[in-house]
Nucleic acid binder design. Sequence first.
DNA 1: TTCAGGGTATTCTATTTAGAGTACTCTGAA
DNA 2: TTCAGAGTACTCTAAATAGAATACCCTGAA
Lengths: 234, 234
Amino acid sequence: MPDKFRGNLLALAVMVCLYERPMHPYEIVLTLRQRHKEESVRLNYGSLYAVIASLLKRGLVAVVGVERQGRLPERTVYCLTDSGKEEVHQWMADLISTPTREYPSLAVALTFLPVLSPDEALRLLKERALSLETRLVQGQASLQWVQRHGLPRLLWIEAEFLLRLTEAELQYVRELIGEIEAGTLEGTDFWKALHESQELSLGIILSEKAQYPEETGIRAGGQGTAPRKRTRHG
Amino acid sequence: MPDKFRGNLLALAVMVCLYERPMHPYEIVLTLRQRHKEESVRLNYGSLYAVIASLLKRGLVAVVGVERQGRLPERTVYCLTDSGKEEVHQWMADLISTPTREYPSLAVALTFLPVLSPDEALRLLKERALSLETRLVQGQASLQWVQRHGLPRLLWIEAEFLLRLTEAELQYVRELIGEIEAGTLEGTDFWKALHESQELSLGIILSEKAQYPEETGIRAGGQGTAPRKRTRHG
DNA sequence: TTCAGGGTATTCTATTTAGAGTACTCTGAA
DNA sequence: TTCAGAGTACTCTAAATAGAATACCCTGAA
């Protein structure tokens, strides 16, 4: 059970469902949906059946039987095998013990922020802040609702965690807005000048001339790519 | 330029590179790497050429020419078209203004945390906390290095942001560890009992009997799936 | 009565994706 | 001198992915 097949976390969700009892694919979807797991696991039909086929091939799930109701399509019922249970454990352990590099879309956007004008960036960041606030309020309300209805917190920690990340994001966005407005974000002057002239010489956006650390050995990532020396071509 | 094609953020990175000047694909990779953009954009050869082909097909980039050095493979040089520039703007604007649902892998893991025993979970969470601390220290050092070498902060905000998220995650993980150890995480007693008996009746992991909000209208997500009524089958 | 609208359950298909593979060049140490 | 090792530049392929499409069922309002 190498981690080569650990691509889609939906596979884990499927296996955990089958841990409970045998189900057919559509029933798995309904279960996950009903329990709001679609908020932490990306869920869609296209992947579902492919993922199950892959689990079947690898012997992690097995076919229990085939049902049929009227002339609706057949429902193949699957169960978790022993090696499936083992895989669930192993996968969970890896997932928790080892942080992986994630690529939140805002990180990409911030990377290339200078392609937008400061004014535009400011407007858009404020818009985002607003959305985040709404999301936060709704999320908190949702959490409170759940609490009032006696669902133990243990079963909602993922929602709590997601909310924390949202809070952190909002806080950062707010700080950024403040600093751009105040002009205390180092580089803002240049950024403004860039967009006041007609032609964007966007080399600067990727900091063409800037001195980047070429070989520091200091990398934020865990097991990132091997460091590379500088190269020139042409 | 609908957002149907907005799948891979590498496409955005490629276009921003070409904003600067025409390049051939491999040169784009080198540029992004040299400037440490691989830390915020998922980068690999397999996708690169496919992504560029797709941009070409949609008229967002165009072929400027083909070079060749010795008997090395040909280098096709691409440039950004006008509609490519527009698309960069539009995409950036959407990316910043509208938060999307993200699926950090820890969220999934927490969702299914009860499949592991509390002791195991605790051990693994501590391991993660350690990794996160290391990553944090390295990231901070990296940021300081950059600052000392005069790179304006504007060009490093994505790293700052990523670090913030890591901090938030670490903080949450620490709190969780504390609460599990102290037994103040509501549901822990049950969780322990579950793993002390032989057979895991894991229905509870997905909280089979629990009352979920079926139709509250309160959803954390922005434009999530339409709310669904409960269903029963079999 | 009939048919819109929503639920059930899966399949299909065009893209994407990851990562290995290929095939060449250059440098420098033994 | 020769050849390992690193870099250059792209291609290939198996697999995964998203989401539309299919095809059926049921309920209830006009």
